[in-house]
Amino acid sequence: MDILQSMRFFATVAQCGSFTAAAQQLDTSTTTVSKVISSLEDRLHTRLINRTTRRLALTEAGVRYLQRCEKILNDVREADEEAGSSHSTPIGRLKIHAMAAGGNHYVIDAIAQYRESYPSVMFDLVLTNRVPDLLEEGYDMSIVLAKELPDSGFVAQRLGMTYSILCASPAYLKRRGVPASPSDLYAHDCLRIVNTVMPVEHWRFEGANGVEVVDTPSSPFQINTADGMTIALSRGMGIGIQPVASAIEGLKAGTLVRVLPDYRFEEFGMFAVYPSRKFVDAKTRTWIEFLKTCIPRMLEVDEKIAKG
């Protein structure tokens, strides 16, 4: 019998004042209770209970041991209750990864809205343009933009679809003219985002007439983040591809204009990826359900703005 169970038997005997009463409470036999207490004393090399045919009395060592046992058993009980309640009550901390563009525009806003309903849930949000190893790096979830997800054994919930668009500042277009087709881009300063999400070799446009592929125009400027690209475009440095999430504020403010509005560039699914369906705690479960309603609503609003 394990030590915690032995402690429970000992504490029950001390509280009940007899082996018989303790056996009834523990739903076992008096003989079993007696054997457990004797084994515990043998292991400790200490007499815990003086017993006669009529009564029991704790020794001095037994009194001290009972105090420690009661504290340990209470701590274990509280730990069990806390762990069990996490399945039904959203509480604790979520460590979330998201790709930078979607994280800045969608995930932070979603967290703010979620915490209005669940203020006991706290978040650690890490933004990077790579897919982390959830288990190795200790993430509860990754919110990923991808055409397809690799077979990882993790659970993936599709939250919606987004895409990228071409943008430039009004001042640049006034100075250099507005391209009418993808092939016109060769006459322009085309800025490039270079990272693991955005391709480098070709720009693949999806329009009413199908797909058009343009070799990536030579670029006077390239950068690894969409947020940095937003600044470069708004300063009139050229035309560049922007995820809708990064372009939307500039489009609303008028500092950016959508170029070739009949074309989309690189559609991506947005996925919430997490380790397991089994024993998903309340904070993770409610966060996932919230994302499944919140993110599509945000994407729909942005779609209308991007279309003008």
Rank of each mutant, 00 (worst) to 15 (best):
Arg192Tyr: 08
Leu58Thr: 04
Ile165Pro: 04
Leu125Phe: 00
Gly207Arg: 07
Pro90Phe: 03
Asn209Lys: 13
Ile288Arg: 01
Val126His: 02
Glu249Lys: 12
Ile241Val: 14
Ser181Met: 12
Asp133Lys: 01
Ala168Glu: 10
Asn50Thr: 14
Leu94Arg: 02
Thr162Asp: 07
Gly308His: 11
Thr53Ala: 15
Asp42Gly: 07
Val121Ile: 04
Pro275Met: 11
Ala272Ser: 08
Ser219Thr: 14
Phe268Cys: 10
Tyr118Gln: 01
Ala306Lys: 02
His87Gly: 09
Leu233Ile: 04
Ile143Pro: 05
Gly210Val: 01
Val131Glu: 09
Ser29Lys: 01
Ala101Asn: 07
Lys95Ala: 10
Val155Lys: 04
Gly269Thr: 07
Phe221Trp: 09
Asp75Asn: 12
Met141Gly: 05
Pro217Ala: 10
Met122Ile: 11
Leu251Tyr: 05
Gly84Leu: 12
His188Gln: 05
Asp262Leu: 09
Asn50Ala: 14
Ala98Glu: 06
Ile305Gly: 06
Lys292Gln: 15
Pro199Gln: 00
Ala306Tyr: 02
Ile49Arg: 05
Gly210Tyr: 09
Val63Arg: 13
Glu60Ser: 08
Arg77Gln: 15
Met7Ser: 02
Ser164Asp: 13
Gly62Asp: 04
Glu148Ser: 14
Thr230Met: 11
Thr20Tyr: 12
Lys278Leu: 13
Ala11Pro: 02
Leu56Cys: 01
Lys147Arg: 14
Val144Ile: 14
Thr12Trp: 00
Leu185Tyr: 01
Lys95Arg: 03
Leu291Val: 03
Ser6Asn: 10
Ala232His: 08
Ser86Asn: 05
Asp27Asn: 08
Gly92Arg: 00
Lys71Thr: 13
